[in-house]
Design a protein around this nucleic acid. Structure first.
Lengths: 239, 239
DNA sequence: CGCCCAATTGACTTAAATCAACAACGGTGG
DNA sequence: CCACCGTTGTTGATTTAAGTCAATTGGGCG
């Protein structure tokens, strides 16, 4: 059930059996939600955090005119809002973009196990810092990369992140997002995303068909995006 | 010396005298650096974190062609790289944009006091989550706000953040940045920043002269920017 | 005085947005 | 069963916000 979450943690650090047990002991209430379900609303006071077990979800903010900016995509194994543990309320909404399976962890329980396990605290603190690193990379994309490079970069990032939790198959992965969803990640319009996807497809780099991403030239795609996975902190940290 | 840091902490949470003492005990090595000093390089393994006592610094990332994106500005009282405590190395550089005064805290000491003081841990964890919230708001700016609104928004944010640590004077504050620096925060060119600053000035909202920002219409500026300070988490959190 | 850097402005270009139409598809209700 | 509808994807024509290029001003200062 929380296997993917453990895979994600163990990609970056050791997790002892006791720590694993502590985590398992506080995860509760599995829930399935349909695509387009708003899981968390900006501003509401939260007393639990939500873990994504399956599906794709996002954090987003919007302007008064309805334009939306997705600030991060989440894949299976991610906490959607671990930061609510210290922030108490969020500055953004959280939305399921596909059908999702989620589980819930009470802040009181988090507090208990983090007080008892300082290493686990640093592990989860690291987790929220990783979210921040992804935010920074997206700022670079939004501020400086061209439209095509932004798309390529996002597809590279998802390939790596999904690979970590065993959700890629060779150079392919399932991504049930619409071009409008992608546009909202990338600060573009869906029309322009469509055109640039065509360019990438015709360049033999990557193609999206029926929600499946097929990377045809991984080297070339990374080059197009100036993608380097440093910001995903894939190396294991010394305990 | 770390008064502004304490002001920042106390704006959001209680800090007991013992906690204050613990913090004071680990801050060492005050240093002055000139503008344009690179304080931290992406990738290097770090064993200490740096606190900004005075001046303006930034985190930035860049592309191979030299285009730079600043991902966050830092003001007095901020930790520049508290996240290096759990990340070990950074995915971005840190640069002093003006003359700066900094102090240093060893990770070993941080580890000691956070192991001893769980509340202090959450306080600093909160701090890194606040950085992430600022990153998200900048993603919204970069992805969806118009150039003029982006500038207005940044000037609002800095007004609030500097106000928290006592560095505003009425509706004015010192900001020793060039228009090129601003452009690198905003994903724009300096030429366009210049033009949009003129527009804001002529609209009677805000003017920058000799590194001083004068807000002439605080309400109007916030409206222009769609600025709401929620993402800065200004309310005090229950202990 | 002369140099450098930052700010400013004008003329022109371009990447992406906008507007509009149409195709492909899956569900669904008569 | 199939006509209808809403959603998603696709494409063309046009507009626009911002970038680019280039020149000028002006202060600070060795």
């Amino acid at each position: 059930m929380i296997e993917r979450h453990l895979m994600k943690l163990r990609a970056r650090d050791e997790v002892t059996p006791e720590e694993e047990q502590a985590i398992r002991s506080i995860v509760r209430e599995l829930r399935h939600v349909r695509a387009d379900t708003r899981l968390i609303r900006a501003g509401e006071v939260l007393s639990e955090s939500t873990m994504l077990l399956d599906g794709i979800a996002c954090r987003y903010k919007d302007l008064r005119n309805g334009e939306r900016q997705i600030t991060e995509l989440h894949v299976a194994g991610d906490f959607l809002d671990l930061h609510s543990f210290t922030l108490k309320r969020l500055d953004h909404d959280v939305l399921a973009l596909t059908r999702c399976t989620i589980a819930v962890v009470a802040h009181d329980d988090l507090r208990r196990i983090t007080d008892d396990h300082p290493h686990l605290t640093r592990l989860y603190w690291f987790g929220t810092n990783l979210d921040a690193a992804i935010h920074r990379e997206w700022e670079l994309s939004l501020g400086r990369r061209t439209a095509a490079a932004r798309i390529a970069h996002l597809l590279c990032e998802l390939y790596v992140r999904l690979g970590l939790v065993g959700l890629t198959d060779g150079f392919s992965y399932r991504l049930g997002l619409t071009q409008t969803d992608l546009a909202e990640c990338l600060g573009l319009t869906s029309v322009h995303v469509n055109r640039m996807l065509k360019e990438l497809r015709e360049g033999g780099l990557v193609a999206i068909r029926d929600g499946m991403v097929d990377i045809e030239d991984w080297e070339g795609l990374q080059k197009r995006a100036e993608f380097t996975p440093d910001y995903l902190y894939l190396e294991r940290r010394p305990r």
